[in-house]
């Protein structure tokens, strides 16, 4: 009974989880990596899982691709239970992880991809033509006969994407596929993912990222994960509406005393985040209305720091995240504990 998906077959979701949880136990400690996750992803969707490092994104992916068992709850992919129907499920999925290093260095790109295609039973000739087609599209045709060890990290990552796509999975899981890639390579990866989905409208992509803009531009819907829990989900548009009422202001300051906590304490400041770029501190503030701005500026003045720039701008997904989580995506969690 555990194997049946709760939804009817015809319109079944590509991915569904119910109160999904995962705990890692070691001799030293117990880590709750995932907790009470309820998700439903439709066929044909490009679904983003957005969250800071350590949020539990990879854990979620690894449960869905049958590498990890959940500690609690249930999950189905393409209607199959990830715990009881995992053998059947493995025909229908693939996974690509950012920074992946799998395979055999002495093989050439084409050979390595062929090797993995065989694990799915593809005929060698069909695999070869599919591989060549995908390599061509990702701009890797020239390195098709190069050994894996001679690839740049961007090329390697694109090769991994080819591996994921070539077996024509029903659902593909991309775990931070553009992490540490240069702008061009990241764009190529995103373009190819989009194109691959257009080829067949029932194909589904689950993509994790900690790049806000990637989630905003690429994904049909996004779940925001923080400390193992889904704290919001919806279209990027809907998530941004969370901060529609707010006034969003970016402040640039010369370096000086810490200010973030003081700004957060100002009445009418909904959320604040800070990051440093090229020796300039940039603060993003969510204000309840325009009237809050003078109070903010007097707080800054009181700290003795000088404002070098001030912009009012449109809300981004990042702002929604900051409002929901209380800190920016790149801010260390531990800072709050005083660690």
């Amino acid at each position: 009974m555990a194997g049946t998906s709760p939804s009817s077959n015809s319109s079944r979701p590509a991915v569904e989880t119910r109160q999904l949880g995962r705990v890692y136990k070691s001799r030293k400690d117990v880590v709750v990596a995932l907790q009470g996750v309820d998700l439903s992803v439709n066929q044909g969707e490009l679904f983003g899982v957005l969250g800071p490092n350590g949020a539990g994104k990879t854990t979620l992916i690894k449960i869905l691709v049958t590498l990890l068992l959940p500690s609690s709850g249930q999950a189905w992919v393409d209607g199959l239970d990830v715990v009881t129907d995992y053998r059947a499920l493995r025909h229908r999925i693939s996974m690509v992880s950012g920074g992946e290093n799998a395979g055999y260095g002495l093989l050439r790109v084409r050979e390595q991809l062929w090797l993995f295609s065989q694990l799915y039973g593809m005929s060698s000739s069909a695999a070869r033509s599919r591989i060549d087609e995908l390599l061509e599209r990702l701009g890797l045709a020239e390195v098709a006969n190069r050994k894996i060890t001679g690839l740049s990290s961007g090329m390697r990552q694109k090769m991994s994407l080819v591996r994921g796509l070539m077996t024509d999975p029903r659902v593909i899981f991309l775990d931070e596929p553009t992490v540490a890639l240069d702008v061009g390579a990241a764009r190529d990866v995103r373009t190819e993912v989009r194109r691959w989905m257009r080829e067949d409208p029932t194909r589904t992509v689950i993509l994790t990222t900690h790049y806000m803009q990637e989630a905003d531009e690429l994904c049909d819907r996004v779940a925001i994960v923080n400390r193992g829990e889904v704290i919001a989900h919806g279209t990027p548009q809907a998530l941004k509406q969370q901060v529609d009422e707010d006034v969003i202001v970016d402040l640039q300051l010369e370096p000086g005393r810490p200010l973030l906590d003081a700004l957060r304490a100002v009445e009418g400041v909904g959320a604040a985040s800070a990051r440093e770029e090229d020796g300039i501190d940039r603060f993003s503030l969510l204000l309840a209305d325009d009237a809050v701005l003078p109070r903010v500026l007097s707080t800054v003045e009181g700290s003795g720091r000088r404002v070098t720039g001030l912009i009012r701008r449109q809300p981004t997904l990042e702002d929604a995240f900051v409002k929901l989580v209380g800190r920016s995506l790149h801010e260390e969690d531990s800072a709050e504990n005083g660690a």
Binding site: V65, T66, R87, R90, I93, N101, A102
Partner: peptide, 10 residues
């Protein structure tokens, strides 16, 4: 990471 790929393949 190769073991992961062997494991999730059918």
């Amino acid at each position: 990471g190769t073991l992961e790929l062997y494991t999730i393949a059918p």
